[in-house]
């Protein structure tokens, strides 16, 4: 059971390994806070839709499963969007049209199709939660790097020395692509190191 949760954090991390759900990942991570908010919204949608889909999985005719999954996901996304607008107005303004785009985040439909439609509620819940947390963590890392270099702050606190020139390119689209590309590379190196260490430990 625990495995279902843990795999989303590292081994099958939706961003660094599967490279899925790119548009929100790249677009909203100009600041760590936005990355966190987008991550939480996505986690909410992936968890609630996975649970619902897992509950109804036996009643859904195979031919129309994709449209039904999509409608369920879109419903939760709308709910999340209105909730943000009602309670976190500033954040929802900053995320703009990228909240509705969670609907087409392939991570969510991917989980529904590959896991929730085949497994019991408990496992689907853990699987979705793991993916959500892994997604959120990656978004915060990306947002933090771009915020530190692009604006000299982290979660709005200035941390760079006086006279630090902001790297404007980091908050531009180009910076998003390049940072994520390099992060994927770093991830691969770390992953390989960990694997060899584990093999050595095994003997």
């Amino acid at each position: 059971m625990i495995k279902d949760f843990v795999k989303g954090l590292w081994k099958e991390n939706p961003i660094f390994v599967q490279v899925l759900g790119m548009c929100p990942t790249l677009a909203v991570t100009t600041k760590a806070l936005f990355g966190l908010s987008m991550g939480l919204a996505t986690t909410f949608v992936v968890v609630s839709s996975s649970v619902v889909i897992s509950v109804v999985r036996k009643f859904v005719p195979r031919q129309v499963r994709i449209p039904i999954f999509t409608v369920i996901i879109a419903t939760f996304v709308t709910a999340a969007d209105y909730f943000l607008k009602a309670n976190f107005f500033q954040i929802s303004k900053a995320l703009g049209p990228y909240v509705p785009l969670i609907v087409v985040n392939c991570v969510i439909l991917g989980r529904a199709e590959a896991f929730a439609s085949k497994n019991k509620v408990g496992r689907s819940f853990l699987d979705a939660l793991g993916m959500g947390v892994g997604f959120t963590a990656a978004l915060i890392v990306l947002g933090a790097i771009r915020e530190i270099l692009g604006a000299g702050t982290i979660f709005e606190f200035p941390i760079m020395w006086k006279g630090f020139t902001n790297w404007i390119v980091m908050v531009l689209p180009a910076g998003a692509f390049i940072t994520l590309g390099l992060l994927v590379g770093v991830f691969n190196i770390l992953d390989k190191k960990m694997k060899t260490r584990r093999e050595i430990a095994k003997g």
């Binding site: 490279v19 180009a174 692509f177 390049i178 590309g181 994927v184 590379g185």
Partner: peptide, 20 residues
């Protein structure tokens, strides 16, 4: 380590700069 997605993203970044 950059083969595949990594290098594609970095190239996309350069294209984005060019398109700017």
């Amino acid at each position: 380590p950059l083969k595949g997605a990594g290098i594609t993203l970095i190239i996309a970044g350069m294209l984005a700069l060019a398109f700017m």
